[in-house]
Nucleic acid binder design. Sequence first.
RNA 1: GGACAGUUAGCUCAAUUGGUAGAGCACUCCUUUGACGUGGGAGUGGUUAGAGGUUCGAGUCCUCUACUGUCCACCA
Length: 879
Amino acid sequence: MTTRQMPKTFDFKEAESRLYRWWQDHGYFKPEIAPPDAEPFVISMPPPNVTGRLHIGHALTDTIEDLMIRYERMRGKAALWVPGQDHAGIATQLQVEKMLRDQGTSREEIGREEFLARTWEWKEKYGGEIVEQIKRLGCSCDWDRLRFTLDEGLSNAVLEVFVRLYDEGLIYRGPRLVNWSPGLKTAVSDLEVERDEEQGKLYFFNYPLEDGGFIPVATTRPETILGDTAVAVHPEDERYKHLIGKRALVPMLNRAIPVIGDEYVEREFGTGALKVTPAHDFNDYEMGKKHDLPLINIMNRDATINANGGQYAGLDRFVCREKLWADMTLAGMTIEVKDHTMVVPRSQRGGEVVEPMISTQWFLKIKPLADKAIAAVRNGDIQIVPERFDKVYYHWMENIEDWCISRQLWWGHRIPAWHGSNGELFVGKTPPPTTSQVTWTPEEDVLDTWFSSGLWPFSTLGWPDQTPDLKRYYPTHMMETGYDILFFWVARMIMMGLWFTDEPPFKTVYLHGLVRDKLGRKISKTLGNVIDPLELVDQYGADPLRLALVTGGTPGNDINLDTARVERNWRFVNKIWQMTNFVTSNLEGDLPFGAPPASELDLPSRWIMSRLNRLVASVQRLFDIYQYGEAGRQIDDFLWGEFADWFIEISKHPLYQGDETEKANTRRVLLHVLDTSLRLLHPYMPFVTEELWSFIPHEGEALIIAKWPQADESYFDEDAEATMTTLIDLVRGVRNVRDEYKVEPSRKISAQADAKRYAAALNEYRYLFARLCNVPDLHILTEGETAPDQSVTVVVGDATIYLPLADFVDVAAECERLTREQSKLLEQIAKIQGTLSNEQFVSRARPDVVERERTRLADLQTTADQIAERLTALCGGKA
RNA sequence: GGACAGUUAGCUCAAUUGGUAGAGCACUCCUUUGACGUGGGAGUGGUUAGAGGUUCGAGUCCUCUACUGUCCACCA
């Protein structure tokens, strides 16, 4: 039996790095640690951005996934958690560009090749940091399988997918109206545009007509007037319908454009007439197609006005807005400017106003892929947890638009296409041969970061090659991530996975919420409410943070993280440390593992074993439905509230006063309960549990690969639980009375008990009262004996304890206390009687519920009777 | 304009298929008894946002209202 001396407290700073290294060196994070025929369980880690720093959201994701992985590993699965990093096109490029600016240069200046070289350097330098940070949380991923979206294998997968989609006719290239980010000088997808309500202005002016007269129109973006190719009115609008077919003149440019009729125009809004700018507005674009209007692009890539803007060429779009409006005002065309609440599209990344612009881009016709993805969830091949996200998923999938996959960036997967000197387009994994007739120039654009992310579950396992990993670990099992990237990532993985592997890339999607501050505010630098997980790990260790994150909320809902919970869990860590210290320091001799059979155990042991096994069963049920938070809370409650507060205290009696059998049994039970609890707790708090497990006698080399507990129903024991509950309540009652009567805790008092059906138990376990409420000589009243008069009573069911506190008892106060208690009881009795006298209840409620109510009533009744008796004896029936 | 969450003790959160509303933190009082003062004991604190309904029984199911938050959406 090991007798390694435990330190007084848990030195997490020292232990965490040591244990992590030890786990990793022993290969415990690798699925190969399980037998070759073990069932696999695989999670692909949502790859953090290569330049990112671990934030609290990562901490949540990684903690939940590590919990799932550790749980399945302990269940004997070949658990594989594939870690990775994302090149994060825009985010990374922006950071490197900033570095270049700080160095007094720019990407344009150094050129594409040099820029990429510098970015790779940057990646090598900073890319590893987040890996180290993930390790600090205790994440048990297989670092030998670490992948990066731009590494060779994954890049090959990207090319393969692109070429196949192109060959299938699903990828096309052409000029379309797209969301253009002028600061980043690239197209972005619909998802990357955020639309928020802002205070803006609505500009009213008169659109001049060729034949004289005018139509009043309103716009929020006057600069787009320069690109107008029509004025639209509602075809049934009495005010304007006679003007349809006439020609209007674009202000300041005097370009003639038609007045058209279209039912899209809302007669009630603004002036009821609309200027149409197909090249700079999505609605107008549609209307333009319908009416065959020309597209006039008036902007350059940086959103300055181009030559189509006449005298305004060269101006910034917002400067142009002011200038043009001023000029129109001088020309007498303007009417008024009103404040107006409107929705402004902004770039998710830079925050700048996104401009709808005509641009030649690559698109993916995604509908066919989406159809498969919808079916997979509908037929249950993929389950989304919580279920309510199904609806969101379907809605998005059913209304999906072609995906603009090209970006005018340099950092990313370059689109495998070549442009021939005669206008040909070639798409393939390798460049086409140059001939005397044609020379080929490679495509400049790269792919949207999410394009490669969409392949993650299978690209990381070696696809398109049929690698052993792909065969064994694909499809994966769990996709755990935040609901905020359901569309960006999850939806696309499902589509790509189904399309290219013919299998759903994972079976379950578990969506967690966002971590917010304790006031429920979004975490942001500007608010100054950033919760830095690494700081918390430094301060309290990884385990307390992990437990706080997992138990802080429920699946799919946001978590308002109160760091006080982390601190509290740090105390919990200490608490289980001290429990273990107690258990180990009380072990002696060679003990068989496991608890003795229930028949050989005393009441407290039967009780704790019953409670333990119910806990195990309950945790299992909760894990089966992904309710990790509730399970964690229950383990916590059990350990602190039952095992430590009661069983450990009680165990001191058999340990110190018992015979050898009692000692051995108690030791075995202590050890078994602790061992089982550490196993249950391990996925939540891997470090401290592993460390503690090393101090207790154990079979097997490490807790991380120890067997996950299973409930043993032979220990379920309702009688033991009921009896112990009564004894505990009696102890509590005595403590309560002592406190109320201000009896010093150190003062021993005597007591007599009229225990009725608990007489035997009370008699056998009277030491509980000595130990737990300083009543060293509880006397059990036998038949004929009567209770002392001058005493305070504690009543639980039909068991009564009399405390002859002669010096303390104030008869009047005691009568009042009893009266108070009695009225509370009578109230409850009345309530239950009401329920039970209801025939409907008795006939319709579940029998066990009725039975429970009857028992409860009987208990209350006997308690009330006891108290009534006391009242008569002590207070002369005053009450 | 649609859709989805949330509203429970002062604060942060729980609560199996409907069956006595619970923790932690904070607060009050007591406490160095041989695991732990990062502890122990005893307490205070709730018409579960409001109104209806279904039911023997509702925090839980249904309807409506209020407030908060999120997502989706083409009113210039």
